[in-house]
Design a protein around this nucleic acid. Structure first.
Length: 552
RNA sequence: GGGCUUGUAGCUUAGUUCGGUAGAGCGACGGACUCUUAAUCCGUAGGCCAAGGGUUCAAAUCCCUUCAGGCCCGCCA
């Protein structure tokens, strides 16, 4: 590398290069010297080369490491085993809201991270934050004692976790604070926090280092608090209605239950290819065959597809199945579950999302797919000749329209093209063509259709359910049709799962099922437009060293 | 897969149009300050300007490639 810089491009054939080459040599030497002096971690004052090389790969701030060393040398533990705290910030705020300038009698013990430190010489104001909130600390040299105060000012930094004891009071400016008389370091942070005013805004860093995002951004913590509450509320809702929660295989020898490309892996000892599940559906239906009449699973699914603002390779769904119920019953269940959730988590049945207000008050609109296309596109697909539909499709530039061979296949394409994104308020679309619904029962009245519905909110598909197909021979034929398409190159078509067919052959009661996309639901309930904002650790490309080829 | 766009100190960023010695705030370090809250004041250190290549007397700036991110479109939930 160095010689390349020294010789430089054009260095052998030009008569004007001595000057720039000279500059390059100076630069290269300066750079080499610079590297020698500044290699991590830098010590202020004289650099110790051997120590520098030893620690070159760690991410820690050398100044903070030195402070930790100094503390240890002074007999202070940087990572003690605990701290008896008597209250949280939120409790303190609630109980001492009425306190005046005179400190309260009661002495409290709080613990948390230092977010800002304002040093006034013999007094320090600091902000301490725990999970429940932040509060100002008032720390005086008089109260802490010279030694402890010097240790605090000299070796404790913003970002460190401390335990404090003291009495609540209001400052002259009226801020509820804790008058600290004891301060213990509970954890010495070795990495600086981001700048206090702007905080952490870099999106990539927020996603890659979510822990830092959570430390810095209360709104992010609130989003994931809501996510946790939503998942828990779903479990409660279903459990209260007699549903049992189970875990079915994530590693599957045959994938199915949805149309999607799977991730493939290998079991070393079985020497067998396995797939990460794209849906739990076929296993949950096996449970219904087995006699569990109400089952559900909060399931992580994996689909080997592109990543964008509404797709993550692994995403969370809840799937629920109920025997002796049909797709209309599952629409009722979905509607009640989600509107209950919105009310419980959000406090009202309407919520503002971006520029629109979504109204979750029941009942929600239900319309058939053909009615939806008639309403939004003015086309009565099922009563128009094929050649006219093909012409319309071509005129609007609808993708893949050449593949459609009948009215129903046109209906699907027209629906996706004209209608989906316009379904803003919660709307059930039901009665899907049999062509794209290989696991749904045939419609009891409409030839060529299935008893299937999808729920759309804000143009996004949120739920998908149907009267489950329980005719084993029909199911076998439809999976075989899928498999033929797969072998012809349709990467998202399903395989024939003969064990599932065997289960159906044993007899599954008439059953309704539904899957609800939890990530998207959380997006709606937290007002986020990117799925990465509601997944704690979204899939990101691994950062590679520059110069390496992508696959090494 | 296609289009647009971003990458400068630990963090937030100016400078890029129209090439000419990289600036600031926060943070860090040293000092002053016992009711501040983006505390304030004085001083110091810290940048191969994402990586690689090209054009040029001269590149953070212009051109090409790569890497990473964001947004939009297509497919999927």
């Amino acid at each position: 590398m160095r010689s390349r810089i020294l010789i430089g491009p054009g260095g052998l054939n030009s008569s004007v290069d001595p000057v720039p080459r000279g500059i390059n040599i100076v630069r290269a030497e300066r750079y080499t010297a610079f590297r020698r002096l500044t290699a991590r971690p830098t010590c202020t004052g004289a650099a110790d080369i051997s120590m520098t090389e030893q620690n070159e790969s760690d991410p820690f701030d050398p100044v903070r490491c030195e402070k930790a060393e100094a503390l240890r040398a002074g007999g202070v533990a940087c990572y003690p085993h605990g701290f008896e705290r008597t209250t949280t910030v939120a409790e303190l705020r609630e109980r001492f809201d009425g306190v005046g300038h005179e400190p309260a009698e009661e002495r409290l013990r709080l613990a948390g991270r230092l977010y800002t430190v304002r040093n006034h010489g013999k007094t320090v104001f600091a902000d301490l934050g725990d999970e429940t909130g932040r509060i100002q600390l008032y720390i005086r040299k008089n109260d802490l004692g010279d030694e402890a105060y010097a240790r605090f000012v000299g070796q404790v930094d913003r970002g460190d976790i401390v335990g404090v004891a003291g009495r609540p009071f209001r400052t002259k400016l009226g801020e509820l604070s804790l008058w600290v008389d004891e301060l213990d370091l509970l954890c010495k942070a070795l990495i600086d926090l981001p700048e206090k005013f702007h905080g952490l805004k870099d999106t990539e860093k927020r996603y890659r280092q979510r822990y830092l995002d959570l430390v810095m951004n209360e709104r992010v913590r609130e989003t994931f608090r809501t996510r946790s509450r939503i998942v828990s509320a779903i479990r409660t809702y279903l459990s209260d209605r007699g549903f049992l929660e189970f875990e079915t295989p994530t590693l599957q020898p045959i994938y199915g239950g949805a149309n999607a490309r799977p991730f493939t892996t290998l079991h070393n000892y079985l020497d067998q290819t396995l797939f990460l599940r794209i849906a739990p559906e076929l296993y949950l239906k096996r449970l219904v065959v087995g006699g569990f009449e109400r089952v559900f699973e909060v399931s992580k699914n994996f689909r080997n597809e592109d990543i964008d603002s509404s797709h993550n390779p692994e995403f969370t769904m809840v799937e629920a199945y109920e025997a002796y119920r049909d797709y209309r019953g599952m629409m009722d269940l979905t509607e009640d579950l989600i509107s209950t959730l919105v009310r419980d988590v959000h406090g009202s049945t309407s919520l503002v999302y971006g520029e629109t207000t979504l109204d979750f008050a029941r009942p929600w609109r239900r319309m058939t797919m053909e009615d939806a296309v008639r309403e939004h596109a003015g086309i009565d697909v099922l009563n128009r000749p094929l050649d006219e539909l093909a012409r319309l499709a071509a005129e609007h530039g609808i993708p893949d329209c050449a593949k459609a061979t009948n009215q129903r296949e046109h209906l699907i394409l027209f629906f996706e093209f004209f209608v989906e994104e316009r379904l803003i308020q919660p709307t059930f679309i039901h009665d899907f063509p049999v062509e794209n619904s290989p696991l749904a029962k045939r419609h009891r009245e409409k030839e060529g259709f299935t008893e299937r519905f999808e729920l759309f909110i804000n143009g996004m598909e949120i739920a998908n359910g149907f009267s489950e197909l329980n005719d084993p021979r029909d199911q076998l034929e439809r999976l075989r049709a899928q498999d033929r398409r797969r072998l012809e190159g349709d990467l998202e078509a399903q395989m024939v799962d003969m064990d599932f067919i065997t289960a159906l052959g044993l007899g599954m009661p008439p059953t309704g099922g539904v899957g609800i996309g939890i990530d998207r639901l959380v997006m709606l309930l937290t007002g986020h437009e990117s799925i990465k904002e509601v997944i704690l650790f979204p899939s990101m490309r691994t950062v590679r060293e520059a110069g390496l080829s992508p696959d090494e």
